[in-house]
Design a protein around this nucleic acid. Structure first.
Length: 427
DNA sequence: AAGTGTGACAACCGCCGCCCA
DNA sequence: GTGGGCGGCGGTTGTCACACT
């Protein structure tokens, strides 16, 4: 026991990942994909086990990670999903794009549990604490939602929120999932909805408010409409948020919902309207490098200058903290998890639409016009160690937003922007 | 200023299930 | 059928920063 077989073969590093290790892993996966995780460390020149690489990638380096603080909608959904699914974090995470099971698990254990208790709700049963027998055994987690439910006769609407949901008339479904899970989860003769149906209803209820229900890309692209997810392109609201001026220095990609979009801003970076702190928006912004950068020193230099393996080390380097805390590579096309090497993506280069395989896009294996090159080129000299490179778009955006929203700018907002700006070396 | 407690989060550990030879 | 390799999952621990005394 203890560790994977691959861990026995040689003395492997453990503990926090260094920026150099991250860089190696990113470059390797960008170039070859992960394939068999056990072979990744060797191929990437890492003294880690494959499992560790996989974890690092999934929980930290993966490009579609949202990062930043959880919104209230996300927290609410997690609570409701937990009431249905129990501690099945990966299942819960599947409904929160950009969030990892680890992240959700940590949030649950460190924050949500406590909040629920403060509200008088037992975090395991989602029932009022007064109703929970003993009251002091709430540290015993339910093994999962099913066991939890079946043991008490399947009570999906255990929480007040779920009770509210259950009280609503559930739309009959003819889908395949609309059949009882098994005898234990749906009592005979009960009109209680199946878990899946209940989940569907729950998610549908969140559809309009959840920040990350669907992955929508927006941001400052050097090439307007270079790469947009289909759901983004078809959405006039999100399209309206496209940058009016293309900034050749940086591609920013943001996973956000419509409510995050502020079409008035002359930049794709939007402010969450119900959460003034930029930490949940800008800090979860991802930087995107042009495909042609793959494999050269740009990533290396940028990453070395701006990323670190943990936020805490960023704090030590105050000047680049904000950027470091959010940095990641992002395709800017669609949800990363949806991408496969053979999946088609539509890329617009100048006036030309190209249908490419994702792998081709990733490796830059497509014709790039001189005009495109000229637009991208200025990016490179400005990316250097030390985390300082120009972001005109951000600066412009900040100035205009200051003018437009001076009266409502909060201290937090300014402070956060200052942090970000310091990170970018603009102030 | 030093020690201690706490929260957040990254990473590890151990187990399980799937796949394949 | 079986055993090894592997990916995935959930629980737990370790580490760091910050607040408080």
């Amino acid at each position: 026991m203890g560790g994977h077989s691959c861990c026995y073969k040689q003395k492997l590093r453990k503990g926090l990942w260094s920026p150099e290790e991250d860089e190696k892993l990113i470059k390797h996966i960008a170039k070859y994909g992960h394939g068999c995780w056990s072979s990744v460390p060797k191929q990437a020149g890492l003294q880690r086990c494959g499992k560790s690489c996989r974890l690092r990638w999934i929980n930290y380096l993966r490009p579609d990670l949202k990062r930043g603080t959880f919104s209230q909608q996300e927290e609410d959904l997690i609570i409701e999903l937990h009431a249905v699914l129990g501690n099945r974090w990966s299942k819960i995470a599947a409904h929160l794009p950009g969030r990892t099971d680890n992240e959700i698990k940590n949030l649950w254990n460190s924050c949500i549990k406590k909040k629920l208790r403060q509200r008088g709700i037992d975090p395991n049963t989602h029932k009022p604490l007064a109703e929970v027998e003993g009251g002091d055994d709430d540290d015993k987690p339910p093994s999962n939602g099913e066991k939890n439910s079946s043991s008490s006769g399947l009570q999906f609407p255990a929480s007040p929120a779920n009770a509210k949901l259950a009280a609503k008339e559930l739309t009959p479904s003819t889908s395949a999932v609309d059949k009882p899970l098994d005898e234990s989860t749906t009592p005979k003769g009960s009109s209680m909805p199946t878990k899946e149906l209940f989940l569907d209803q729950l998610l549908a209820n969140h559809e309009s408010t959840l920040t990350c229900r669907s992955s929508i890309s927006m941001g400052c692209f050097p090439l307007p409409q270079l790469s947009l997810a289909p759901d983004f392109c078809s959405n006039p609201t999100t399209l309206a948020a496209l940058p009016m001026s293309s900034n050749p220095l940086l591609w920013l990609n943001q996973t956000a919902t419509q409510y995050d979009v502020n079409p008035e801003l002359n930049c794709g970076i939007a402010r969450s309207t119900d959460a003034p702190s930029l930490s949940t928006t800008i800090l979860s912004t991802s930087m995107v490098l042009p495909p042609s950068c793959a494999g050269d020193d740009t990533i290396s230099n940028w990453y070395a200058g701006n990323c670190d393996s943990s936020r805490r080390s960023m704090v030590n380097d105050g000047a680049s903290m904000a950027l470091q805390s959010s940095c990641s590579f992002n395709s800017g096309i669609s949800a990363w998890s949806d991408l496969t090497p053979d999946k088609d993506v539509q890329v617009q280069l100048g006036e030309d639409n190209l249908d490419l395989k994702w792998s081709e896009y990733l490796h830059g294996a497509f014709p790039v016009t001189a005009a495109v090159q000229a637009q991208c080129q200025p990016l490179y000299p400005d990316i250097k160690r030390g985390g300082r490179f120009a972001i005109n778009g951000l600066s412009t955006w900040h100035q205009s937003s200051q003018l437009q929203q001076q009266s409502q700018a909060s201290d937090i907002y300014s402070k956060d922007f200052h942090s970000v700006s310091m990170g970018f070396g603009q102030i």
